[in-house]
Design a protein around this nucleic acid. Sequence first.
DNA 1: GATTATTGTCGAAACGTTTCGACACTGAAA
DNA 2: TTTCAGTGTCGAAACGTTTCGACAATAATC
Lengths: 334, 334
Amino acid sequence: MNVTIREVARTAGVAVSTVSLVLNRKGRVSRETERKVLDAIEKLHYHPQRSARGLVTRHSGNLGFILSTDHFSNAEPFYTKIFLGTEFEARSHDYYVLLTTIEQQFSEKSIPRFLLEKNVDGVILAGTVPPKILECIKERGLPCVLIDYFPPAGNYSAILIDNADGIRQAVTHLIEKGHRDLVFVGGDSQHPGMRERRDAFRRILAEHDLDADERRICADSLASGAQEGYEAALHFLNNGVKLTAFVAANDAIASGILRACRDRKLRIPEDVAITGFDDVETAITARPTLTTLHVPKEEMGALAVRLLAQLIAGSASAGTKIVVPVQLVPREST
Amino acid sequence: MNVTIREVARTAGVAVSTVSLVLNRKGRVSRETERKVLDAIEKLHYHPQRSARGLVTRHSGNLGFILSTDHFSNAEPFYTKIFLGTEFEARSHDYYVLLTTIEQQFSEKSIPRFLLEKNVDGVILAGTVPPKILECIKERGLPCVLIDYFPPAGNYSAILIDNADGIRQAVTHLIEKGHRDLVFVGGDSQHPGMRERRDAFRRILAEHDLDADERRICADSLASGAQEGYEAALHFLNNGVKLTAFVAANDAIASGILRACRDRKLRIPEDVAITGFDDVETAITARPTLTTLHVPKEEMGALAVRLLAQLIAGSASAGTKIVVPVQLVPREST
DNA sequence: GATTATTGTCGAAACGTTTCGACACTGAAA
DNA sequence: TTTCAGTGTCGAAACGTTTCGACAATAATC
């Protein structure tokens, strides 16, 4: 029923170990026996079995993908796009991707099963993840790549977004459109990426000699959703801050700002302009459509897989960071 | 370094096989030894290794997901949504999902690696797939579930869309809006689902004593994209077919029709109404937004996993079919 | 008290690979 | 001729589990 390496050996008239040698192109095998073995393999339709091979080589042929639960169940397909990017790329590296999610409050009890079962050769982590999981992975000696997150301490390989340049593009774009009074609405300041966006805003405004007062920056909310954007916008408008443009830290926030402006009967983009960040579905479905910064999500996933594969093979060194560029997409909101 | 079942046995002062028994809750183990074993496991942080277990049980703990290459690379995230649905559901069944794509012209050479390596316990196939791959799976004795496809012959388990009812909802909706002269634009008639939509259109119009002449149905294109919709719409308009509403077999076709109508300076929905099918991104991003039939894509993926898990466990019988309902979403195009 | 079931435990054999050291050749160097 | 390096092949051990039959020890039946 089940054709094994033993049968191949018997058919070819050689030892099991010899078959293994030609299978793995290791050691020296004569032209002639190689022929015999290959013929037997062909004839019997033999293919080595993953679990048997994995048992001895300690390689599973799988990569793990870890995402925090709220990122996965989040309606915005930001991280799922990244995940699909890894799936696509993994195929050309002969890996399969195992997806799991973890709670933000991570405990010993909830270690991803693929780690416990030693069922992955490396791990990709997307978005904010608890530091404990990183220790967990390090303990097991697995290489890993972070995406869109970099923890306060430690030397990790990561795929990062060029947040500063994105904000620069947005601000420059607004300045070109004649805006001088900008405000910034940020998100979860725990997230280093979000902080980068906020800091870049401050810095770039200063570079252009524009007012970058603290009161023009609202970035202390814990979440980064439409609701926070809505409230922050109202805060600015109610306090009479002089402004003609909002720079939002992401598209969800921007859509909240949009709603607030509509409630206040402000015309967009005539009265106020708004820019988002990420270029997710929201940006296109919003009315008016959002000018935003396109982040190449699938590509980031693909890059992560490529880097991870190199780390596993030992052809890249841990700590490599790749920063992907973003691209301004002008739409109706500016 | 690597903690094995043997160490657990030693620490607990029992035989290896006994540890295995408590691990798998098989056979009878006394309360007392169970305690000892569990304590040892806890103390050593032991967890059985997947590949070792898989080698003997012949179970991998993985499900395969097969998609045709063009469906995956297709911009429309119809099938990727389904895939994400399987990922989500798989987690609660303790399975991981391995994704692969196959070419439509399938050969012996390109059998998915996870089949060759015996690395999956069951397979999900989404969309049109070559019949040969189905044989391939059957040969290996693996249970499988089809999604949104049913081959001409054979008795398969499948998750299907209630296409007839969807078209019924669309037509009824249009009739309520006062339309009497409807035409249908179909897609790839190789696909059974597409044929169902076309046949349903014909039948339901007849039920309402409306003109369901063959000349009101355009369904012989090979593809099912915007371009085909565009051309079909022009065909109807140029030939002076009397019509006030288009029923499209999917959203891509509908968006093509939309464009044709715009080119002809027809107002939507005043001059002509249009309905789509599937409710993918196109439907929301189109201008005007598309009235369409919402298909619960993630849910279909989840249902497939649930059914496949039951098939593997032997608690469902092969040949089970599940038809999921669709829901009309009225938007600007009608 | 002898027989038979039942219960709990165990040792050993499998599962299908890879890898390592041994070994017999061959031909070249001493 | 003896020694040595290199080549090709092999047998056996290992990888970490599960499972099966054997076997005491205990409990139930006659």
